[in-house]
Amino acid sequence: MGGHEVSGHEQELVEYALGELDPKTAARIARHLEGCEHCRSELVRIEEALGWLGTAVPQVEPPPALRARILTTAALEGRQRWRLAWARGLLAAAAVLLVFALLLAVFQADRRIDDVLARQARIVAVLAAADWSTAMQGEEADLPAQVGRVYLDREERTGLLVLEELPLPGDRRIYQVWLIRSDGGRDSAGVFLPDPDGKALLVIQAREPWTTYRGMGITVEPGPEGSAQPTGKQIAGCTWNWEGWAAH
């Protein structure tokens, strides 16, 4: 391509499209793409070529039952989704605004746009099902009174923890989320590190239904695996109050 202007980013664009860049480099390229129309159009071309490359494999007819299964699932899911949207729309609408703002913030740190979209889809699904929410309160002097919010579907075991103001926990330390059972015992719900702005979006999968727990807490634990039971002081937490949920 004789007149093609070399931007110097071809190698990185190829690796970006293949999802091979480390998060830091991917974030740098994402920032560059925002301001460089030439590289954006190059990326679109590379991605389109990668997509059509998928037609170069031997073609096999999928089983006919697959079509019926997908369309039936879509029909059922469609009805359920609209019912939930009607019943739970107010909470979800408020939360979705918040989450989209946060997703934009954490977008830069993510590896691939597809990863972001898949994660976004999962988060939106959890939020669409959520019917209850409460504030996550800071319990340390140097933390704000509210560090984030929890969104739950009371009938299920998934929830979303949205944290907005949590400093990094220090060298070789990690935050660990605990679900507090009614007998006072703690179930680990995973470990995480917030981004440099103190933000984190976590999909929480509880071992038991939410109603068997009375709250949630966050402690600082040794990284990277965390602990079997809490060893550090609880720095933030909340207790369920099922009778009503506090407005924003």
Partner: peptide
């Protein structure tokens, strides 16, 4: 804005 639907879908399938 990021290109036609077909290659997008196939890229998602590949990923």
């Amino acid at each position: 804005a990021r290109g036609p639907f077909g290659p997008w879908l196939l890229r998602s399938a590949r990923n």
